[in-house]
Design a protein around this nucleic acid. Structure first.
Lengths: 150, 150
DNA sequence: GCATAACCTAGTATTTTAGTAAAGTATTAT
DNA sequence: ATAATACTTTACTAAAATACTAGGTTATGC
């Protein structure tokens, strides 16, 4: 799992969509204006989001995008995975032919970390965000990742 | 908090250091060979790690790098922060002059997420990794982030 | 049939990543 | 002292990812 601004743009746009989703499709031009993301860049992102089945589109006047499922069914990990093609985090290309166990230790380590963070992102849905529960609150739910003491 | 291959290189190198740290400094050429990272790139990374006080260096023959503190005192978040200069995740430059509350919602959201992930990374130290406890095990400790059910 | 808005393709500037190259500085074993 | 070792610094470069631009096409509601 990679965390970059690209994924953040996608989450931002999807959140905008979730907040304005009242049966009427939302067009990208509006999202572009509201979230200050270029229209063409949004088109690229939504092309992927559509291919992953996270949004559905309607063409023509009054057209636009809608969430393809309930906001409670769309997790942050789904959104980020849709736009950030996954990097192969393993140096050995997943073929386990690394020299010695040290390198595989690092390999396993990073996979573990990725799993942890993905798990966290999977536990937070768009519905959680629109209901303005803080991420901290969400993460303290039964089925999600409680947070570290500070 | 940004998660890229750069940070992974740094963690890998630091883990190599931790595994070979028996009073004798470890030189970068050895790490380069073992972890298959170019020497000059390691030099760039270690320059930052040294400035952040995570490693100490010894020059001259037999010189190299050592951990500046105990492996149990060095967390993954420290390593990643040292090499990946933090991005300003807020569109408004932290000045809170965003138009309307929607944009600030996203802004807060991403800061929350960052805090969560940083918290997780702070809970995992080099000592945890060298002791070959899996990240999952570590994350299930009292003071760290338990993981999501799968 | 016309405006709207998704969809598609290609290109491009910028930044980041990862690595090279070269010259220099400090340390220390001999 | 001196050579060897090894870090330090600077500058440069190739490749990739990011963010955006331009120009078109296709579908559709009015």
């Amino acid at each position: 799992m990679k965390l970059t601004t690209k994924g953040r743009y996608a989450v931002t746009a999807m959140l905008d969509l979730a907040l304005h989703d009242n049966n009427v499709p939302v067009n990208l031009a509006d999202i572009s204006t509201r979230q200050v993301i270029s229209l063409a860049y949004l088109e690229q992102l939504f092309s992927r989001l559509r291919k992953e089945g996270l949004v559905s589109s309607a063409r023509g006047p009054g057209g636009g995008y809608k969430l393809a499922k309930a906001a409670s069914e769309i997790s942050l990990s789904q959104i980020i995975d849709a736009v950030d093609e996954s990097v192969d985090a393993t140096r050995c290309g997943g073929q386990m032919n690394c020299q010695g166990e040290e390198q595989c230790l690092t390999h396993d380590l990073w996979e573990d970390l990725s799993t942890q963070i993905r798990g966290f992102m999977t536990g937070v849905t768009l519905a959680d965000l629109t209901s303005r529960r803080s991420v901290k609150t969400v993460s303290q739910r039964q089925n999600a990742i409680p947070m570290v003491q500070h």
